[in-house]
Design a protein around this nucleic acid. Structure first.
Length: 824
RNA sequence: GCCGAAGUGGCGGAAUUGGCAGACGCACACGAUUCAAAAUCGUGCGGGAAACCAUGAGGGUUCGAGUCCCUCCUUCGGCACCA
C-alpha cells in the first residue's frame, strides 16, 4: 500500500474499472429486490457544472449508494434539459448552430460529472432536444390535444421583450421575466394553452398526499393554486339587457354594494360607453392602463384610480341603482373581471369609495354594537351580524354567506362558485430551439393534429434564428409548407415551439425505458420504477416544474397510461451554495470552479466537504479552508488504515478483550447506528460525517494508548469505517477496501447492521443539578432505576455538602441523564 | 400587507422526544517532532478572577427551555389590488 493518498490516480483508476465492470448498470423489473428510484433534477447544459450541481448530485449520490447497499434495486439516472433560449442566444452570438452548441456543452458536462464519480447508469441518459425524445414530447402534446386539454385561444398574454417570446404566468416573477428580468408586457395574441385549471382541484387536494414533501413547497403550491369559495352574481345594466356577472367571496355583504367596478379590459366597457359623453375619457383611461408595465399595473402601492362610465347597474337583491366604474385595481384575469363595491367591508373598495366620495353603507356589525355609533375609518372585514340587509337582518354573517347564495340560486340571480388563482398554462413560444407543436392548419379542414405515425415533426436545421418576435420557423418554407393529413391539400404547420417545461414534465418517465422507440415509456417499466422515491433539487422549482410534473402525471393517469397520480413521493429541496454570504454567480464574481477544486483535491474531498459543511436543505457557505479540512480528514483516515495494513506498531494480542477493546467495539456499533439513522431518517450527512470523524479520532487514541489490541475487534472497526465512508468518498473507500484484501467492490457490500448488545454501557455519567443548575457530574451503573439513582446521589459527600442547611423540596431523577435536587 | 423559514462562539455548524449548550470541522494559540519549515501527532480555545452569565430582545409555562407559549426586532424566501 502506498503511504501517500494519491487521489488523482485512485479516482481515475476506479472510474475506469467501475465503467468496465458495469457497476452502476441498472436491471429493469428485478422482482427479487425492492426498487428505489432516486432522482435529481437534470441540468440545463450550459456548458459547465457549477457548485449547485455538485451539491445537488452529491446528495443524490449518497442516497443512491446507501440504498443500493441496503439491498434496493436502485434507479439513478442522469440526462439533459437541452432545449431553451441560451442555446439560441449563444448561436446568434457565436454563429454556431444551437444543436452544436448544446451537444458540445453536454459532452463537456458529462465529462465533468464522470470526473466526480456519480453512480449514474449512463446507458439511460436522456436528452430532450433529440428527435427520439421530442417525438414523445409531441406525442404527449397530442394526447392532451385529443382530450381537449390543449387548445389555442386569443388572449392578453405575458410578453417578454428581452426574450421576444410569450411566457407562462409561472414564469413572471414580480412582473418581470424569470429568466432575463425584463419587465413583462401584455399583448393580445393567439396562443396554445394546456388546461391545467381543469386539474386545479385535484392538484390542490392531493397536496395532502405529499407527506414526504417540505411544508414550504406545499404551501407555495397551495397559494399558487389559490382556491377561493364564493358566488357569482348577475347585475343587469340599467336600461339595457346586458348582464354583468361579478365574483365575490362575500355574498353576505350584497346589501352593502354601493358601486360596481369593471376591469379596463372588460368586453362591455366599449359597448356601454360608445356614443356617450363618456366614450373619449374612458378610452383614454383604458389606453393609459394598457400602457402601464405589469409591475406598475399590479403594484399594491399604486393608488386606486377609476372613472365613472355613465352607466348604472341594478342590484338584483333590492333593485337599487348603482353607478358603474372602471378602475385600475380590478383585473380582467381573475374571477369575471368585475367586482361589486362594498366599501364598508373591503379595504380596497373603501379606499376607492373614499377617494371618489361614494356612499359607504355598513351591513355587518360586530355583535352588540348599535348601528348609529358606527363611524368607519377603515373597512370592517371581520365577523358580525347583518344589518340593513332586508330579510337577512340579524343573521350571523357566516350563516348569511350560505343563505344569501342559496337565495340567489333559487331566484336565478346568482350561484355558488369556486374560483382559482391558477391560470391555464401558456405553452407556445416564438422561438426556434424547442419541440415544434405538432399541429397543421388547412384552409379546408382547419386545425388538424399531426398523425402520431408522422412524428416527430423534425426541427429543421437550416433556419435563420434571429429573434424577431415571430417564430424563426415562420420563414422556413420547407418546414411550414406541408399537406393536410385529412384532405391531402396544401397546408401550413404551426411554427411555435413548446415551452421547455413541457420537456421536463415527463423526463422521469422516459428514464424508465429510455430506448423504447414505440412508446414514450413502457408501461411495465413505469409501473415498476415509478413513482420516484426520492426527488432532489433546488427550491426555485417549487411551483413551475413540480406543479407541471404533477399535472402531467394526473393527466396520464386519467388516460390510463400510468397507475399512480403523484410522481414524486419524497422531495428534498437543497439550499444554495454561497460564497461570502451571497449566491455564487458570474456577475458577482464569487464563483468557485468545481473543476479546479476537483483537480486540486479530488472528487472525494469536494463531495465530502459539500456534504459536511451544512445539512442539505440549508444554504451552504463555501470555504476553501473547509475543503482543506475535508482533504486533511481523508489523509488522516488513509494513514490510519495504512498503519493498520502495514502492521506498524503491530499488536501481539489476539484473544483477550481489554476495556479499550470493548469501547472500540461499542463505538463501532454506535457509529453504524448513528450514521444509519442520520442517513435514512434525516438526510443529515453533516452529522453522519462528523460521527465518522469522531470514530477516527477514537481509533487514533486506541492505537496510541493500547500497544496490545484485540485483532478481530480492530479489524471490524477498520472494515466498518471503510464501508461507512463508501457513499461519501466512493473512490477513496474502494481503494482502501481493496488494500484491506477484498476483491469485490466496497459498493456491493451490504450496509452494516449493528449489534444492540454491543451498545450497552455498564456505567454512564450523569449530571447532578441544584435547582436546575449543573453542580456536579458522577458515574453510576447504567441500569439503576430512579429511586436508586436518587438515593445514590443524595449519599455522596459532595452533594450532602451542597445541600447542607437547605431544605430539599423535591428530587427529579431521569435515568441515564440527571438528578435535579430542588432546594429552598 | 399576507404566508413561510431562520437567528447559537471569531467562522461553518451540533444538541433527533423539554434534560450536561457549543459535538465535528475551520481559524487561532501552545507543545512534541524537525537544523529549520511544511506536513504530522497532541493540548487548549464562549464571557468572567470567581460566584456566575450566556442560544436575536422582552415576558411566560416548567424541577428544568436553544427546544413549548405570547409580544417584539432582524435577515432570507414566496405571494402580492385574487374581489
Amino acid at each position: 500500500m502506498k503511504e501517500r493518498y494519491d487521489f488523482s490516480a485512485i479516482e481515475t483508476k476506479w472510474q475506469k474499472i467501475w465503467e468496465e465492470t458495469g457497476l452502476h448498470k441498472v436491471v429493469d423489473n428485478d422482482t427479487t429486490k425492492e426498487k428505489y428510484y432516486c432522482l435529481e433534477m437534470f441540468p440545463y447544459p450550459s456548458g459547465n457544472l457549477h457548485m449547485g450541481h455538485v451539491r445537488n448530485y452529491s446528495i443524490g449520490d449518497v442516497v443512491a449508494r446507501v440504498k443500493a447497499m441496503q439491498g434496493y434495486n436502485v434507479l439513478h439516472p442522469m440526462g439533459w434539459d437541452a432545449f431553451g433560449l441560451p442555446a439560441e442566444n449563444a448561436a446568434i452570438k457565436h454563429g454556431i448552430h444551437p444543436y452544436q452548441w448544446t451537444r458540445s456543452n453536454i459532452e463537456n458536462m458529462r465529462k465533468q460529472l464522470s470526473r466526480l464519480g456519480f453512480s449514474y447508469d449512463w446507458d439511460r441518459e436522456v436528452t430532450t432536444c433529440t428527435p427520439d425524445y421530442y417525438r414523445w414530447t409531441q406525442w404527449l402534446f397530442l394526447q392532451f390535444y385529443k382530450n381537449g386539454l390543449a387548445y389555442k385561444k386569443h388572449a392578453a398574454v405575458n410578453w417578454c421583450p428581452g426574450c421576444v417570446t410569450v411566457l407562462a404566468n409561472e414564469q413572471v416573477v414580480n412582473g418581470a421575466c424569470e429568466r432575463c428580468g425584463t419587465s413583462v408586457e401584455k399583448k393580445g395574441l393567439s396562443q396554445w394553452f394546456l388546461k391545467i385549471t381543469d386539474y386545479a382541484d385535484r392538484l390542490l387536494a392531493d397536496i395532502e398526499k405529499l407527506n414526504g414533501w417540505p411544508d414550504k413547497v406545499k404551501i407555495m403550491q397551495e397559494n399558487w393554486i389559490g382556491r377561493s369559495e364564493g358566488a357569482e352574481v348577475n347585475f343587469r345594466v340599467d336600461g339595457t339587457d346586458d348582464i354583468i356577472t361579478v365574483y365575490t367571496t362575500r355574498p353576505d355583504t350584497i346589501y352593502g354594494v354601493t358601486f360596481m367596478v369593471l376591469a379596463p379590459e372588460h368586453p362591455l366597457v366599449a359597448k356601454l360607453t360608445t356614443g356617450t359623453p363618456y366614450e373619449a375619457s374612458v378610452r383614454d383611461f383604458v389606453r393609459r392602463m394598457q400602457n402601464l408595465s405589469e409591475i406598475d399595473r399590479t403594484s399594491t402601492d399604486a393608488e386606486k384610480e377609476g372613472l365613472f362610465t355613465g352607466a348604472h347597474v341594478i342590484n338584483p337583491m333590492n333593485g337599487e341603482k348603482i353607478p358603474l366604474f372602471i378602475a385600475n385595481y380590478v383585473l380582467m384575469d381573475y374571477g369575471t373581471g368585475a367586482v361589486m363595491g362594498v366599501p364598508a367591508h373591503d379595504q380596497r373598495d373603501f379606499d376607492f369609495a373614499t377617494k371618489y366620495s361614494l356612499q359607504i353603507r355598513v351591513v355587518i356589525l360586530p355583535e352588540g354594537v348599535p348601528d348609529k355609533y358606527v363611524q368607519l375609518t377603515q373597512a370592517y372585514d371581520a365577523e358580525g351580524v347583518l344589518v340593513n340587509s332586508g330579510p337577512f337582518d340579524g343573521q350571523n354573517n357566516e350563516d348569511a354567506i350560505k343563505n344569501v347564495a342559496a337565495y340567489m340560486e333559487e331566484k336565478g340571480i346568482g350561484k355558488s362558485m369556486v374560483n382559482f388563482r391558477l391560470r391555464d398554462w401558456l405553452i407556445s413560444r416564438q422561438r426556434y430551439w424547442g419541440a415544434p407543436i405538432p399541429i397543421i392548419y388547412c384552409s379546408k379542414c382547419g386545425e388538424v393534429a399531426v398523425p402520431e405515425e408522422q412524428l416527430p415533426v423534425h426541427l429543421p436545421t437550416d433556419v435563420e434564428f434571429k429573434p424577431t418576435g415571430k417564430s424563426p420557423l415562420t420563414d422556413c418554407d420547407s418546414f411550414v409548407n406541408t399537406v393536410c393529413p385529412e384532405c391531402g391539400g396544401p397546408a401550413r404547420r404551426e411554427t411555435d415551439t413548446m415551452d421547455t417545461f413541457i420537456c421536463s414534465s415527463w423526463y422521469y418517465l422516459r428514464y424508465c425505458s429510455p430506448h423504447d422507440d414505440r412508446n414514450a415509456f413502457t408501461k411495465d417499466n413505469a409501473a415498476y420504477w415509478m413513482p420516484v422515491e426520492q426527488y432532489i433539487g433546488g427550491v426555485e422549482h417549487a411551483i413551475l416544474h413540480l406543479l407541471y410534473s404533477r399535472f402531467f402525471t394526473k393527466v396520464l393517469k386519467d388516460q390510463g397510461l400510468v397507475d399512480f397520480d403523484e410522481p414524486f413521493t419524497n422531495l428534498l429541496t437543497q439550499g444554495m451554495v454561497l460564497k461570502d454570504g451571497a449566491k455564487m454567480s458570474k456577475s458577482k464574481g464569487n464563483t468557485v470552479s468545481p473543476e479546479e477544486t476537483v483537480a486540486k483535491y479530488g472528487a472525494d474531498t469536494a463531495r465530502l466537504f459539500i456534504l459536511f459543511a451544512a445539512p442539505p436543505e440549508r444554504d451552504l457557505e463555501w470555504s476553501d479552508a473547509g475543503v482543506e479540512g475535508a482533504y486533511r480528514f481523508l489523509n488522516r483516515v488513509w494513514r490510519l488504515v495504512y498503519a493498520y495494513i502495514d502492521r506498524l506498531n503491530e499488536s501481539p494480542a489476539l484473544e483477550e478483550v481489554s476495556e479499550a477493546d470493548k469501547e472500540t467495539r461499542r463505538l463501532t456499533h454506535y457509529t453504524i447506528k448513528k450514521i444509519t439513522d442520520d442517513v435514512n431518517q434525516r438526510f443529515n450527512f453533516n452529522t453522519a460525517i462528523s460521527t465518522i470523524m469522531e470514530f477516527v479520532n477514537w481509533l487514533y487514541q486506541y492505537r496510541e494508548k493500547n500497544p496490545v489490541r484485540n485483532s478481530s475487534i480492530e479489524a471490524e472497526a477498520v472494515n466498518t469505517l471503510v464501508i461507512l465512508l463508501a457513499p461519501f468518498a466512493p473512490h477513496f473507500a474502494e481503494e482502501l477496501w481493496h488494500e484491506l484484501g477484498y476483491t469485490d467492490s466496497v459498493h456491493k457490500q451490504p450496509w452494516p447492521g449493528y449489534d444492540p448488545a454491543a451498545l450497552v454501557q455498564a456505567e454512564v455519567e450523569i449530571v447532578v443539578q441544584l435547582n436546575g443548575k449543573v453542580k456536579s457530574r458522577m458515574t453510576v451503573p447504567a441500569d439503576i432505576d430512579k429511586d436508586e439513582m436518587e438515593k445514590f446521589v443524595l449519599e455522596q459527600d459532595k452533594i450532602v455538602e451542597l445541600i447542607s442547611g437547605k431544605q430539599v423540596v423535591k428530587v427529579i431523577a431521569v435515568p441515564k441523564k440527571l438528578v435535579n435536587i430542588v432546594v429552598k
